[in-house]
């Protein structure tokens, strides 16, 4: 009897320690990547709300976090519809040919956890406009255990949330986006900020 109890205890703790898969296709549609680049009159700012992807996160071993975040190129929007069309068009991001912007997490370095929050440096591969480059991004991960149902006003549903925040700057010429062109009108540097939430409902 004691053996059975011990085995079940070990099994249950092993199950609890298993990585959790978080789906970043948000049911509330909040997820977006914000971008901003300086231009002649004012910074051109917008967002890409077509976020999806999965991240495997183990609260007991945050360093082993892995996954992929995808943003649909055709979801990138700015305040002016003509600019939006240009942005998605052939000369800039060519959304029909390169429909996805992808960040694939390879590893987390410099992991520091305090309570539910972890800061780290995410090393991964960033694909934009069909060009893939290695990239490191300082990120903050917040694990909100049991908050999935509460967020949907259905507290009876169990499950966790994982919030990922990060900010980084890329040079558009590195990703063959109008390289060396119109730099007097549109800055070559693009600042990207993400604040996204992944859900892991409990069945």
């Amino acid at each position: 009897m004691k053996k059975i109890l011990l085995i079940s205890l070990v099994l249950s703790s092993a199950l609890n320690a298993a990585p959790i898969s978080f789906d970043f296709k948000d049911p509330k549609g909040v997820n977006a990547i914000q971008f901003s680049l300086d231009s002649l009159l004012e910074p051109i700012s917008g967002n890409g709300s077509g976020v999806s992807g999965m991240v495997s996160f183990d609260p007991a071993n945050v360093g082993a976090t892995s996954g992929k975040i995808v943003v649909a190129t055709a979801s990138l929007t700015v305040s002016n519809s003509m600019m939006t069309d240009h942005l998605r068009g052939e000369k800039w991001l060519n959304a029909p040919v390169h429909p996805e912007i992808v960040f694939e997490l390879v590893k987390l370095d410099n992991v520091q956890t305090s309570g539910t929050t972890t800061t780290a440096t995410a090393a991964g591969k960033f694909t934009l406009n069909g060009v893939t480059k290695s990239l490191t991004v300082p990120v903050k991960l917040t694990h909100l255990a049991g908050a999935f149902g509460k967020r949907l006003n259905k507290p009876e549903i169990g499950g966790d949330l994982l919030v990922i925040r990060g900010s980084f700057t890329i040079n558009r010429s590195d990703y063959a986006i109008m390289a060396g062109q119109m730099e007097d009108k549109v800055n070559p540097e693009i600042k990207l900020t993400l604040a996204i939430v992944g859900s892991a409902p409990k069945a």
Binding site: V30, N31, L144, R151, V163
Partner: peptide, 12 residues
């Protein structure tokens, strides 16, 4: 702002 996650998001 999303209350639970404190994520600031934009709609148009």
């Amino acid at each position: 702002i999303d209350e639970i996650t404190s994520i600031h998001y934009v709609t148009y």
